[in-house]
């Protein structure tokens, strides 16, 4: 009987997952970009990128090194502002708000669009302080107990709480690489973002730690809109529902992940994902 009940559950779960994929095109657009160009001084790095990022789904950007995928990711939360000589044209909206509106508070924007980097970069502080820092500066907690709750729930959402609950006041840098990366994800979650940008979040991790992060990404998409840049096509295929392929600064093709990896339209996409000489 148990076995039969188990099968029933599995069937239900599968239907749920299928439904998620099917309804991707019906989802509201969280981030919308139109004709985005990026220049580093005289050199143009990105050409007229227009793409819609669907709500509560994982969108992956793939492409060879130097194709502009990370540059584009960094445009979404204005990280390129920090690079001297970088200039962005075109339009990027988050929930209809112009991200490049001069009157917009960039710090507040980055609390709405969190970011996780290639190399885990915890602050040289305790695990607790790493998470608590953001909510404190954004005034999200009125009391110590509020803050404690945010720290615990963020660590839980990042699947890290059980592993670090006895080490909350030890340095975050003392954790393993995979744990540090999940700490960074917990830190991003703590300020309640709508979108999380991930720039090759697993490239410094071993396959097991990578699998744990991928499982986490899959859980997080229930509540967050995730954009991930990855060099691993298998990772893009595993975790994302929408995939965009960049080449030489141009968005060549975008579509449902399944379509991009089974039947891409453009030859450049085909050559890249099949590992062929283009």
């Amino acid at each position: 009987m148990d076995m039969i009940a188990g099968r029933g559950n599995m069937a239900e779960q599968n239907t749920d997952k299928a439904a998620k994929v099917d309804t991707l095109s019906d989802r509201r657009v969280r981030v919308s970009t139109r004709d985005v160009c990026v220049f580093y001084g005289e050199k143009q790095a990105l050409y007229d990128v227009s793409i819609d990022v669907p709500d509560r789904a994982v969108t992956s950007f793939i492409g060879p090194s130097g194709c502009g995928k990370s540059t584009f990711l960094r445009c979404i939360n204005r990280m390129n502002d920090t690079i001297e000589g970088a200039r962005v044209t075109g339009k990027i909206d988050l929930d209809g708000d112009d991200v490049y509106d001069p009157s917009l508070d960039v710090v507040e924007l980055r609390s709405r669009i969190g970011m996780v980097f290639q190399k885990p970069n915890p602050f040289p502080k305790s695990v607790y302080e790493n998470i608590a820092y953001g909510p404190k500066i954004h005034g999200l907690a009125n009391s110590k107990s509020d803050l404690d709750e945010i720290v615990v729930s963020s660590l839980r959402k990042a699947g890290l709480f059980e592993e670090v609950k006895d080490r909350l006041h030890e340095p975050g840098t003392g954790l393993s690489g995979g744990q540090q990366q999940r700490l960074c994800i917990a830190r991003a979650i703590a300020v309640g973002p709508e979108v999380i940008l991930m720039d090759e979040p697993c490239s410094a991790l071993d396959p097991i730690a990578t699998a744990v992060i991928e499982e986490l990404i899959d859980e997080l998409r229930e509540n967050f809109t995730i954009v991930i840049v990855t060099h691993s096509m298998q990772q893009a295929a595993r975790v994302s529902q929408k995939t965009a392929f960049f080449h030489l600064g141009k968005l060549i093709e975008e579509g449902p992940t399944e379509q991009i990896f089974t039947n891409p339209v453009h030859k450049q996409t085909q050559d890249y994902i099949m590992g062929r000489i283009g």
Partner: peptide
């Protein structure tokens, strides 16, 4: 090889 697209097909 983790084949993709027409190779997978």
């Amino acid at each position: 090889r983790q084949p993709m697209a027409s190779d997978l097909r």
